[in-house]
């Protein structure tokens, strides 16, 4: 199977969401989703396409016994997961007594460089920010870091906008907002911006409603419809 063929991937994701995929194929697809963000995005698009059918159902509260049955299966409250680096760091710590502090530091540096250099080879997209609707709080856009020092900003669901307006993205970090580009309202059609243009952690990405083609002044002129804090600096 050539999973890198976007057409095939899209079809498989469609059958996964539609539910016609046999169970074993679906289990295999679940593993692909866990490993590959491109599959995640395909699945999300299909799920969002069909979701209005489910959303149109009148809500039905399940009987109390369902929640009671769930509670008995939860097990004890979980401790937060240990940081991933703990294991090799701990083992280095043990070496310290045997090899001397300077040697341990040298090894630690080498391991550090080695670990982080190899970790960078498969570029796992990380979420840089989620921009939420200023009124409802609903998540609407996502900024993810990916390959080549770029951050992609795309719609999580289809956004509605008339032909006379554009969604414009801004970086806010202390000074006046800096324009980053016009966003596509269609999920999966993200725009790429250089990582260096994204504000540092704690800064804000915001989307304002502007005349078609973007703000004529270089500063936001319309309402800020969406915004989100940068919680993971890509650099």
């Amino acid at each position: 199977m050539k999973y890198d063929d976007p057409k095939l991937r899209e079809l498989l994701a469609g059958r996964y969401v539609l539910g016609t995929m046999p169970r074993r194929a679906r289990a295999r697809f679940d593993r692909l989703i866990a490993e590959d963000a491109a599959f995640c995005a395909d699945v999300r698009e299909w799920a969002e396409i069909f979701a209005p059918i489910d959303a149109a159902e009148a809500p039905v509260a399940p009987p109390q016994r369902v929640w009671r049955a769930i509670e008995t299966q939860l097990g004890p409250a979980r401790a937060p997961a240990a940081p991933a680096r703990g294991s090799w760091f701990d083992s280095l710590w043990l070496w310290r007594g045997a090899t001397g502090f300077a040697a341990a530091v040298a090894v630690a540096l080498l391991v550090y460089i080695g670990v982080f250099a190899t970790q960078e080879t498969p570029p796992m997209p990380t979420v840089v920010a989620v921009l939420s609707d200023s009124k409802s709080g609903a998540p609407a856009w996502i900024a993810r870091s990916g390959r080549d020092d770029q951050v992609t900003v795309s719609a999580l669901g289809r956004q509605t906008i008339d032909a006379g307006h554009s969604f414009q993205l801004w970086a806010i970090a202390g000074g006046p907002p800096r324009p980053l580009g016009l966003l596509s309202p269609v999920p999966g059609r993200g725009i790429a911006i250089p990582s260096s243009a994204v504000p540092p952690t704690g800064g804000v990405l915001a989307v304002s409603l502007e005349p078609a083609g973007g703000s004529p002044t270089g500063q936001p002129t319309g309402p800020v419809l969406f915004q989100g804090k940068v919680f993971s600096n890509p650099l």
Binding site: A37, V127, V130, P139
Partner: peptide, 8 residues
């Protein structure tokens, strides 16, 4: 969040 909204 790449997988869609929590409800989806």
């Amino acid at each position: 969040p790449v997988k869609g909204s929590p409800l989806i």
